[in-house]
Amino acid sequence: MATDPPRRQVAPTAQRRWRSLHMPAPLYAALVLAAFLGTIQLAQIAGFWSTSGKITLDGAPVEVTGADPAEVKGWMTISDVLGAYGLTQDELYTHYQIPADLPTSAALKDIEAIAPEFSVTDLRVWLAERAAQP
């Protein structure tokens, strides 16, 4: 006589604490898209959205003021920093051993590949130390 194959040991159904509803796949997909894209859309409508450090929350272009070294970003140029923080090109280039032929129109983030001593983080620290000196 044929017998049924042995049944694998499975966990018994636990007592459920709360009622639950079946969730159809299309509704689940719609929920996933609505929750994710809806949050992004709401943030954009509220103005809480920026994908670049070059623009402020109000949509105005960010400019280096020279007041706080923390504002220095990798996309800023050497000349931006020289002008705002009262540095000479020679001071900066000597301190970080930057090749003299590098134009001051270069972005700070591009210096990292040329001068191993340089990093934007280190530049911020150096500028803050200079500002703290009497």
Binding site: R16, W18, S20, L21, H22, M23
Partner: peptide, 9 residues
Amino acid sequence: LRLSIPLTT
């Protein structure tokens, strides 16, 4: 796939 409704025993 189920959505539990809390506080509904």
